[in-house]
Structure formats: structure tokens, C-alpha cells
Design a protein around this nucleic acid. Structure first.
Lengths: 309, 309
DNA sequence: ACTCATCATAACCTCAGCGTATAATCCAAT
DNA sequence: ATTGGATTATACGCTGAGGTTATGATGAGT
């Protein structure tokens, strides 16, 4: 590009003044101070060698040269803005956003991200971790944990809730093994702080397996499930594991299941498309891949979304 | 303008890369370093959400998005550049550049600039001060000092060379007045340093009036006539005055002519149009105004340029 | 395998361009 | 004619955006 084009800071300041009617209005619209606009336009006028505004009036009025430049800038900027908008939308169309509870994201989704990317070339996966209770639906594909909601739009259950205790070999090496639930007294039990009974915690787990809560258990609280698991992996105590969520750690032996006993409910991880039937094909492809990779073998009666017969 | 337009620093860097074929070539053409171009384009790509160049090749190749953006930028920048070029040329057409010896500029032309502007509304007068010996012709209207050049294109003599000594009242109050040339001994004579005998200096002035150079005169040298006159105005000595040039100071009494004796030659200030008969009307108008304002009443035989019967 | 050109990134530096303060000026209302 | 408010221009001080250099990674040609 020739150096004959003026500095764009001046052109954009000038054009903002044209559209806003005053230099003060241009400053507001560009989020700078009014003197900044004044100087930029003065520099542009020095470069061009003539006034673009008639300053014998307040607010300023365009000169003939200013009018000519404004027309060219409108056309030129519109061309560029239209092209960049199309490019941004095309790029955004290749982005599929998946949101879910932080535990699910950290321990189920992210470990499988490489496989997901390979399964969906050309799609950029964007992940948003959400805590329980955050409002609304964010992202093209949304995963939530909870009970089935019969009035909700179509959801796929990808993991049910089956919970059992586990600990790391490091922890177990410091205490006798195997450790049965009856022997949890005086043991460190890792738990989610501020639990709202939307999932099993230690008391409700023991209740579900029909055993009393062990006396003198020591609770260590965290405010995110990822921190609970990180503490368990570090050998700091016994955690509750959701079946299917921590398979990578259980399979690798980084965590060891402590008993065949488990508590189960009809809750689970449910996945849905924010836009339902109007979802983009890229989003449907991501949802289908997650569904077929989920530990729960049987999807809900709606089956795979997007498939037609 | 919407904030949706990307930063122009990125757009211009990208477009320069497209036109130059490589980022390195873009850096050269924009006079910045190659890393600066690299970062600017990276920021643009982050804003747009996609790659504009395919970097698995050297040099880089445009992606589909890059090609689309390049097309839009070519059109948009061309519109803007064409408009700004027209505006610059129109503005430049209103500019008439007058060049002349620094003494003439400082003491004759600039004091009359207000009147000239009033006589030529819509014309921007641009003045270039030149020292003797500088090459060529600069400016639409050129004033030179020297002898008439019969082979030169049409010139108007605006001031002849008639030279006499003068001093300020401040200086004269410190010495006896009136001061005749015979009494210049031991007086401070202000002179142009490095005089090349193209105009009167003190020795040649005394020779011209048929009197001996006064012994024991004290010369104070300056390298510009304007400095000589400023020193005289400040009461530091006696200067040589060119008639017609310093009328404003003589008329106001800031300088006082010391003798009716003067030296004269056929040299003088000659004015011409760089473009001769092809000069723009604005330039012709400026030349005519200067000619009619000059102290020399009779122009050369060619008369006023640009006048038709 | 080697060499060269091209490109990306880290670390450091500085001045272009910002904001604030304030004065000048136009315009509408009184 | 006066006044108050809005708009614009300019001086001064400050800082972080964007430059540079150094250097490593990588593609392409030989």
C-alpha cells in the first residue's frame, strides 16, 4: 500500500466526527477524549493540506473536501467492514462451544479433547467450565448434572450417577489396605464445600449404602470438584468418585476404588443442544461424538439428534 | 464507524504482505522490522478468528479468508487513496510557493504577506527562504538577486540595487550624529560573512561613492542578511541598506539613513514564474501583485505576465 | 546434509499519542 | 447586550503500545 494513504487514526477520527456530528460525539463513540480527536483531525488536515471542517460554526461543518472524503471513507470502510464481518462469522461458524460442570470438563471432556478434535476436523472446540447454579445456557452444546427434566428439550444422558469412594496408592500406602467403609473412622474424607445436596456427599452416600456415617471422620473441604480430585491424587484423603467421570485415573491406577459398594441415583450428566433442531451441523457432530463416547451405553429415547430416516 | 472494523495497523500490515509477497517484504515497504509485521498480522488473525496466511509454506500463502480480505482491502484502500489524492492535489493547487533570498523574504515579502493574502483569497502562500548560491528554481514564483540575465525567461525587476548605510537611533544616541561616511573610522560596520561580491559590501560601497575605505573600521560579520539587520536594529552598528528592501524599518524610524550618498548598480531583485506561460492562474496572480507592489515602478518590457489582449 | 531466507517469539526500550487542565469561541436564551 | 453552556484548540506531563534487537525454528533449494 502506498504511503500516500493518510494515517488511519486521523481517518477514523474524522469519520467518527462526521457520523456523530461533533468532535465531542466522535470522542465518545471512539472512547477517547475530545482533545485526542481534535489533534488527530488536525494532523489529517495538515497531511491533506486543507481543512475538512469549517470551524467558523459550532459544531463544525464539513467543507467540500471534507464531504468528498467522508463519502470515500463511507464506501471504503463499508467494503472492509463487510468483508471482515463475513470472515469473522465464517470463523465463528467453525467454533463449537461446549459448556459443562467443572468436574466433567476437567476429568471427562478435556482428556478426550484430542480424540474429539480428530473426529471433528475443521471445528474449533471451545470449552467453558461452569459451576453449579450459574444461570442459563452457555455454548452450543451444554452439559448439566442433575435429575432428568421431563419438560426439558431433548437431552442425552451421557453418564449416570454411580458413586464410590477412592483414594490414591500413595494414601493407601500410609494406611492399611483394603479399607472398607466401616474403617473410615478417623480417615480424611475429601468433600465439596457448600454442597447443596444436588449430588452425593459423604452423609448421603453412607445413607444410600445402608451404613452409618463413621464417627470421628475428618472432613477436608474444597470449593471445586477438581480441587477435591487433585487433593486425592496427591494422597491427602479419600474422595467420592463418579463412575465414568474419573475412568482415566482409575484405569491408570492413579486412584483406587476402595469398595464394590456404590450409591446410585437416576441423576446424571445430561447433554443438549442450545439451539435444538436449529443447531449448526458442527454442533450436532460434536454432541454426537460426546454421546457415543459416554460411558452410559443407552441414550434417552430420543436417540441421536440430527439423524434422519 | 463501528468498532467492528479491525485495527488498521493490522490491515495495513496484512495488505503490505499481500502486495510484497512476504512478511519480510512488507516490513521493508512499511519501514518497520519483520517481527513488527508478524505481530500485527497475528493480532489481526486473533481478532478475525482465523488464519489469513497458510504458514506451512515459505513464504506464506493466502488462505481463502486471506484472499477475501485482500480483495476487500484493495478496493477499500483504493477508494480512500483516490479521494485523498484528489483532495491533496486540489489543496496543492491552492498553494503558491514563493522563494527568494532570505533578506528579501524577511524584510520585503513577509511584512507584506497580509496584504498579499487579502489580495489573493483562496490562495495559500508558501514561502521558501533561499541563500545565494543554492541551486535551481524552487517554487512557483522565484525571486533572485543579481544582474539582469538577457537569456533568461521573462523576468520582472521588482527592486533595483541602491545601497546606503543606516543605523538605529539607539546606535546613533551613543555616537555623535549626523555621521558622514568620512566619520566611519572606528565605527562598527556590520557585514555579511563570506561575501562573494555579488552585491555591495563595505569596500565596494566606498569605492562606488568615490571615497576611501575608512581606516580602523570594525567589522562584525554575520552569515545571513537578516542577522545583519537584526544586529543593526539592536544598535550594534552600521549596516548597508538596500533601498526598497527595508522601507518598513526606514519609514518607522527603526533605522535611520545616514547619508544621501548611495551606490547603485543595474543589479536588482528579479522575479519570474518557474512555469513561464504554463503557470497556474493562482501563481500568476501572486506574481502580479508582487510586481505592482514593488518599489521599482517600471517592469521589464514584457510587462505583466498572463495579461491578454 | 547444508545453507539461506523467512517467520515467530522473548526481552527491552522509548516516544507517539493519550488524558487533564484550561482558554477561546460560538450559539441560544434572556 | 449579556450570560451560560457546549464545543473546540492547545499546553503539559505521562505511559504503555508498538517499535527494535536477538535468536531459534522451519521450509526450500542445492
Amino acid at each position: 500500500m502506498s504511503s500516500r494513504l493518510p494515517a488511519f487514526s486521523g481517518l477514523t477520527a474524522f469519520y467518527a466526527a462526521v457520523r456523530n456530528g461533533t468532535l465531542t460525539g466522535a470522542a465518545r463513540s471512539l472512547n477517547v477524549s475530545q482533545p485526542a480527536i481534535s489533534r488527530r483531525i488536525a494532523q489529517l488536515e495538515a497531511d491533506l493540506g486543507c481543512a475538512l471542517f469549517d470551524r467558523s460554526h459550532k459544531p463544525v461543518q464539513l467543507t467540500d473536501s471534507g464531504r468528498e472524503l467522508a463519502t470515500a471513507l463511507r464506501s471504503g470502510f463499508d467494503l472492509i467492514e463487510t468483508a471482515t464481518d463475513r470472515i469473522r462469522r465464517a470463523a465463528k461458524g467453525r467454533v463449537v462451544t461446549v459448556s459443562g460442570p467443572s468436574g466433567f470438563v476437567a476429568f471427562w471432556l478435556i482428556p478426550r479433547l484430542g480424540q474429539l478434535q480428530e473426529a471433528c476436523p475443521g471445528t474449533i472446540i471451545r470449552i467453558i467450565s461452569m459451576e453449579h447454579g450459574e444461570p442459563g445456557r452457555i455454548g452450543d452444546v451444554t452439559v448439566r448434572f442433575g435429575a432428568q427434566d421431563p419438560s426439558a428439550q431433548q437431552e442425552i444422558k451421557i453418564l449416570g450417577e454411580e458413586v464410590f469412594p477412592a483414594a490414591s496408592p500413595l494414601y493407601l500406602s500410609r494406611i492399611q489396605t483394603p479399607l472398607t467403609p466401616d474403617e473410615f473412622s478417623n480417615k480424611a474424607l475429601l468433600t465439596m464445600e457448600g454442597s447443596r445436596r444436588y449430588w452425593y456427599d459423604w452423609p448421603s452416600w453412607f445413607d444410600a449404602i445402608g451404613r452409618p456415617m463413621p464417627p470421628a471422620a475428618q472432613f477436608i473441604d474444597f470449593n471445586a470438584y477438581a480441587m477435591v480430585i487433585n487433593a486425592a491424587l496427591a494422597g491427602q484423603g479419600i474422595c467420592l468418585c463418579w463412575s465414568g467421570l474419573l475412568d482415566t485415573f482409575l484405569d491408570s491406577g492413579a486412584l483406587v476404588r476402595l469398595t464394590h459398594l456404590s450409591a446410585a441415583s437416576d441423576r446424571g450428566y445430561f447433554m443438549s443442544l442450545r439451539d435444538g433442531g436449529a443447531a449448526r451441523p458442527e454442533a450436532i457432530a460434536v454432541l454426537n461424538w460426546i454421546a457415543q463416547s459416554g460411558a452410559t451405553p443407552a441414550p434417552t429415547a430420543a436417540g441421536r439428534l440430527g439423524e434422519q430416516h
